[in-house]
Design a protein around this nucleic acid. Structure first.
Lengths: 144, 144
DNA sequence: CGTAATACATCAGGTGCTGATATAGTTGGT
DNA sequence: ACCAACTATATCAGCACCTGATGTATTACG
């Protein structure tokens, strides 16, 4: 790939990120809240300190977030029987719904834009799907 | 494009958004601050109410943001001579630098990931660049 | 000329982040 | 079994950043 096209590609991806994240910001869950719910959905119950590491925020931020998520019913908190200092945080059904809802609205935004493309453009994107998937893989600190 | 591939594509794009925006969150400028600086860079001096519309935040939020940006030297504020109620906000050289710096770090993140792909994958992406660019166009409410 | 509309500032209140510190529970050396 | 060190979480002060309600200055209009 030539240099100018790398520049166009990164700019297009940057712009896409801007469009989607601005939209997502108006829909209830903060970025960290969505990431935390997603981590809980994938990993099962976690300690606050695990979530702190996964989401790369400070421990007080995660404690506060988990408390707010519990207040709105999206997670539950129970004392870890194997270590009474620790709190086990688990996603609830309402939490899974909120996460699915967020994904649906992001997908709807992207799908609406895909719908405006010509068949040729869609075909080019189709052939690039594997590359795009690889672009986000090998993130141990996983996406939402 | 078949249905499952639309699903994979939207998920890949969602994940990409998550990765890039999490990274960007740790680098100084808030999403709205970056969008505002970008708008000022493209449009030239704007009123607070113009920026409020462009960034889709409430007017008090924009007034506060502009005040903080002025305090850190990224924008200047002058009274509009044609309407003394209004404030004209303009980006400064420092503001342009901050914006360029943010774009550089986002580009670096994306470029690092591109570097891990095989030539075949890169080629597929290269052919999809035009489609990706179109995907973000026709946004009057422009990206950062 | 006075009322309505406009542009912005300000205030109260909530989220969400940081660094510093407190509290409770666990662990390891004696 | 004890106590010092360590660990997990909670709490606090402080700032960024958002909203809705309200205040103030200026402009526009009948």
């Amino acid at each position: 790939m030539q240099q100018p096209d790398v520049a166009r590609l990164t700019q297009a991806l940057r712009d896409l990120v801007a469009v989607v994240s601005r939209d997502s910001a108006t829909r209830g869950l903060s970025r960290t809240a969505a990431g935390t719910l997603s981590a809980l959905d994938r990993h099962g119950p976690c300690r606050v300190s695990d979530l702190t590491r996964l989401e790369a925020v400070g421990q007080p931020a995660m404690t506060g977030l988990v408390q707010r998520l519990e207040a709105t019913g999206l997670v539950s908190r129970t004392s870890d029987p194997s270590d009474r200092r620790a709190t086990l945080v688990a996603i609830t059904d309402a939490g899974r719904s909120a996460l699915a809802e967020r994904r649906r609205s992001q997908d709807a935004l992207i799908a609406a834009r895909l719908g405006r493309l010509s068949p040729d453009r869609l075909d080019a994107l189709d052939r690039a799907v594997d590359a795009l998937v690889e672009l986000t893989q090998e993130d141990h600190d996983q996406p939402h």
